[in-house]
């Protein structure tokens, strides 16, 4: 987790460049492509082992990024020379968050006990959108453990309408309620 602020700084810098050129959205895909390549076991093993010299790694980067977006190639080169290739995936994520924020989008996870229908999903994301005044990218999840209702997580906040939580609070109240 200590890596998160570092990755955010790189993402902010890259995003600033992309915004100047007005290509922020296109670059996200380029970033994701390259991140996928780097996640391949052979590549990631080669890039992360200390037994390979930085010079060799940089050469590898040049080959990997041939024909790709030069600015993103520069980012990977910079990260490699600073022993920070591991950050690349995180930078991609942070870049995505920055892009979402600048476009007024927000990601959210909605958890239900049984799968939501498309209309339910739409209604949930619409109502969330109106209350948050943002476009909501809702990701549906399933967890039979919550018994019923819906649990929505937006960033660091949880809107808890699950039956599990209500039962727990009912139990707590019944145990402590004074009947005097």
């Amino acid at each position: 987790m200590a890596k998160a602020p570092t990755a955010r700084r790189y993402a902010q810098a890259l995003f600033a460049i992309a915004q100047e050129k007005d290509v922020a959205e296109a670059w996200l895909n380029d970033l994701r492509d390259l991140a996928a390549v780097l996640e391949e076991p052979t590549v990631s093993a080669f890039m992360s082992t200390p037994r390979v010299t930085t010079a060799d790694k940089l050469q590898m980067v040049t080959q990997l990024t041939e024909g790709r977006n030069p600015m993103i190639a520069n980012l990977l080169g910079l990260l490699t020379s600073r022993q920070g290739v591991g950050l690349f995936g995180k930078v991609t994520e942070e870049y995505g968050e920055l892009l979402n924020a600048s476009l007024g989008r927000i990601r959210a996870q909605g958890t239900t006990a049984t799968p939501m229908s498309a209309t339910q999903l739409k209604r949930l994301s619409d109502s969330l959108g109106t209350s948050l005044k943002k476009e909501v990218l809702l990701e549906a999840r399933e967890d039979p453990g919550i018994i019923g209702g819906v649990l929505v997580r937006v960033g660091d906040q949880i809107i808890d309408g699950s039956v599990r939580t209500k039962l727990a609070s009912l139990k707590r109240q019944l145990a402590h309620e004074s009947l005097t």
């Binding site: 660091d156 906040q157 808890d160 939580t165 209500k166 019944l174």
Partner: peptide
């Protein structure tokens, strides 16, 4: 007394959702 407390809680059961920082 117990019954009335329960009644109140059953009526309110479906109501409020809570917003929590996590």
């Amino acid at each position: 007394d117990i019954a009335s407390v329960l009644k109140k809680q059953i009526e309110e059961f479906a109501g409020e959702t809570t917003l929590t920082e996590v």
